[in-house]
Amino acid sequence: MTANCSATWYDGRTALGREVTLTDEGASLTVSGEGIELSYRLEDLRIDPRLGSVRRMLRCPDGATAETSADLFLDELLRRQGKGGFFRRVHRWESSLGRALAALVLTLLAAYCFVSYGVPFLAAKAAFALPPATEELMGRETLQVLDRLVLKPSKLPAERRRELRRLFSSMAVRYPERAGWSIEFRSGEAVGANAFALPSGIVIVTDKLVQLARNDHEIAGVLAHEIGHVNYRHALRHLLQNSATALLVATLTGDISSISSVAATMPTVLIAARYSRSFEREADDAAVVYLKGEGIPVQVYAEMLARLDADHWQERENVPRFGELLDSHPLMLERVNRVMENAR
């Protein structure tokens, strides 16, 4: 054991440092130097852990400190205090290139797992805990913003809108939480042929989508897909997954009202973001389940998806799109193939 070491002493009253010797006396530590002769109980000392090659501080109860690079001496004091084991292991890891690289890989792996699995899990938990009144308010405000920015009143005949509302109501009745769910019709060049769901259960269908469909079975498939988004809270979960601070506050403290602080970004989420593959698959599966239950060939939905995608690509060449507004259906061929496989 190293019995003593040299150090720079600061008395806590002035910035002047003086050279001293620290001596381990077993249960106490003595500090000796020119005009200095002090003793402290070992249990009263606070000793900084190792940090690379940085000189460490030994802190005394009267505010004085000693600065030294005698790591072994300080490590022994920490050991006898019953402290420092964790930091000694950390220092060994950071002193070894191989261990440091391994720690980096483990850190990156942990971050990847948290982002890929932890964040979606927390987002789902928070989304389903959101009070219905808050969700309804978010839906109404989002629709108002979209109406101001990119949507226009529908030009569909009133009778046609009534027919599609009856179709939507017959589909939504399957869900016990359907109170407040509704279908809205809008037009707008920036949107094109599209349908999308707001958090409160408002499903927006554009005039061009209705015109693009060859029959109501195709529209029913699209509506079932959007109802799947509503039922699984996809819009809200997507918002939360991209708002980490609000998500952590909501799930760790139970303060669900903190989500309201990011609710204003919902229109941007719907306009600029793309749903993840898993969200689209869940919504597609909901559409397939509905169509099979009604005895409607699933192929009509697959054909509608392909036709929508072709229309979107054509519009990209001819019409400027508002941040590729609501074009939230990537890799359409993969989705069409999967829908057809599930139809068997």
Rank of each mutant, 00 (worst) to 15 (best):
G295K: 03
M340W: 04
K83H: 11
I271V: 12
S200Q: 06
L58V: 07
T107C: 04
R89N: 12
R274I: 05
S53A: 13
N231R: 12
Y232D: 15
S96F: 02
G221V: 01
T265Q: 13
V105N: 06
E67V: 03
T245M: 08
S169C: 09
S154R: 14
D284S: 08
L146P: 02
G26M: 14
R50F: 05
D284G: 11
I204G: 07
R237F: 05
A197S: 13
Q241N: 08
F196I: 08
V210D: 04
A110C: 13
E159Y: 05
N318D: 05
L22K: 10
Q81R: 06
S258W: 05
A27Q: 11
A27M: 10
P131C: 10
D75Y: 14
V173K: 13
L212V: 04
E163G: 12
L331P: 00
N231G: 06
Q241A: 02
N194V: 13
S182E: 09
A250N: 01
R178F: 12
N194W: 14
E218W: 08
I259H: 01
A111I: 09
L252W: 13
R56V: 02
G63W: 04
H238N: 13
V230H: 00
A273R: 15
A310P: 07
V105I: 15
P131R: 08
T30G: 00
S116P: 03
T107A: 15
E294K: 14
L325G: 11
L151T: 10
V269Q: 10
S260W: 06
A343K: 03
A102Y: 04
M1R: 11
E294C: 07
T206Y: 05
P199S: 00
A244D: 00
H217N: 15
T8Q: 06
E303V: 10
L305C: 10
R55V: 13
M57N: 10
P157V: 09
D285I: 14
V20E: 04
A195T: 06
L223T: 13
D75G: 11
Y301S: 01
A133Y: 04
H225R: 14
D24S: 06
E324Q: 07
A3E: 14
V145N: 04
S261G: 10
V210K: 09
V319Y: 13
D216A: 03
L101Y: 07
R13S: 01
A193V: 08
C60T: 06
Y112E: 06
V105P: 11
L164D: 00
E37N: 05
L45Y: 09
W313H: 04
A195D: 03
H225N: 08
R344M: 14
K152T: 11
V339P: 05
N337P: 00
D71W: 02
E19N: 14
L149V: 07
G201R: 11
L167T: 02
D255C: 07
S328L: 03
V191G: 00
S182T: 13
S243P: 01
G295L: 01
L97I: 14
F73H: 10
S182G: 09
Y112G: 10
L74G: 00
R316P: 02
T23M: 12
P330A: 09
A102C: 12
A193R: 01
E135T: 15
S32Q: 15
P267Y: 15
L164N: 00
P267H: 05
